[in-house]
Simulated assay, not measured.
Amino acid sequence: MCRWLAYTGNPVQLETVLFRAKHSLIDQSLHSRLGQTTTNGDGFGIGWYGRPTDIPFRYRCMQPAWSDRNLREAARAIHSPLFVAHIRAATDTPAQETNCHPFRYGRWLFVHNGLVRNYPAVRRELMMAIKPELFPSIEGSTDSEVLFFLALTFGLELTPVTALERMVAFVEATGRKNGVEQPLNMTVCATDGEQIIAVRYSSERESRSLFHSSSFHHLRELYPHDSRIAAAGDDAFLVLSEPLVDLPGWWEEIPESTAVVARGGEIEQYAFNPHLG
């Protein structure tokens, strides 16, 4: 499958998490420890904000992340208070730039790890449920992008967690109507530059791995000489498919069927209960 991460806190170089960490996202593109596939080489993307109210920037490429020299230059140059990054292992759709995450609509970015099972059988019905005014913004052919635009259809910009619950319920109902017993497996992240919403969920209750950082204030007390922690600030937050470094107390696994919302230094967890109401 795929690997992804999202960060919010003091502005930091993207290079810090993409390249410098022992088990950085670039290392995970070649040597994933917890993913369904060891290698994630079917494209990559980064999305970042200058200010929360700005339309986010993106850089996407269909080449493997480890071989893109421009990515290393960009990651060294870009400092951002909120960014997402994704490395792709394709399932049913081709490796092409428009299929690389993050997907973008207005101020929103979206990344996904997992799959809609038997996607070709349900694709048309899922796409027809997307609001007509959103449909022209779909660029690629992935199930992930359709999940994003379904979430927008169900109100992502107003009530993010509820919209994601409604999106999942609709996908599951559509899949089961078409004979798919366990329609959806996902970890997803959506952000508008002011908040990060991350969800770990699957129809079979065996979701892909997902972790978030412990309190950076606590981490600074545990590791007072680590410059990366000091630079990020006490309100920093990371959510990611697998840990970047092996340090005790740094990571907490997000439970199955859980949504995490990080905003302004506050982190909240909610039970994730798909429903159409």
Rank of each mutant, 00 (worst) to 15 (best):
V171T: 07
A151Q: 04
V116N: 00
K177T: 12
S137V: 05
G155K: 03
G140D: 00
V122K: 00
M127C: 14
C189I: 15
F110R: 03
A190G: 11
L109K: 01
E194C: 12
P160A: 09
R124Q: 11
S137F: 12
A151Y: 06
E139Q: 13
K177H: 09
T187K: 01
T142E: 04
P120M: 01
A173P: 00
V168Q: 02
A163V: 08
R166G: 07
N113R: 06
G175M: 08
S137P: 00
E139W: 06
G193T: 04
S144H: 00
L156H: 06
L126Y: 02
G175A: 09
E145I: 03
E165F: 05
R117Y: 13
T187F: 02
M167V: 11
F148R: 00
R124P: 01
T187Y: 01
I138M: 14
K131L: 14
I138Q: 11
R123W: 00
G193I: 02
L158E: 15
Q182T: 13
E157H: 08
G179H: 01
E157A: 15
N178T: 11
V188T: 15
T162V: 13
M128K: 12
T187A: 10
T162R: 15
D192Q: 04
Q182H: 14
T153P: 05
L109P: 01
E125P: 03
T187V: 15
P132A: 08
M167F: 09
D143I: 10
Q182P: 03
G114K: 00
T174Y: 03
L134R: 00
L115P: 03
V116A: 05
P160H: 08
V116K: 01
V168Y: 04
C189Q: 06
E139N: 07
V161Q: 10
M167T: 14
E157N: 09
G114L: 04
V168R: 05
P160N: 08
D143Y: 05
M167Q: 11
F154P: 10
Q195V: 14
S137G: 00
R176C: 06
L150A: 11
A121N: 08
F148A: 05
V188D: 03
M186V: 12
F135A: 15
Q182L: 15
E194L: 12
L126K: 03
S141K: 03
G114D: 05
G179C: 07
N178H: 15
P136T: 10
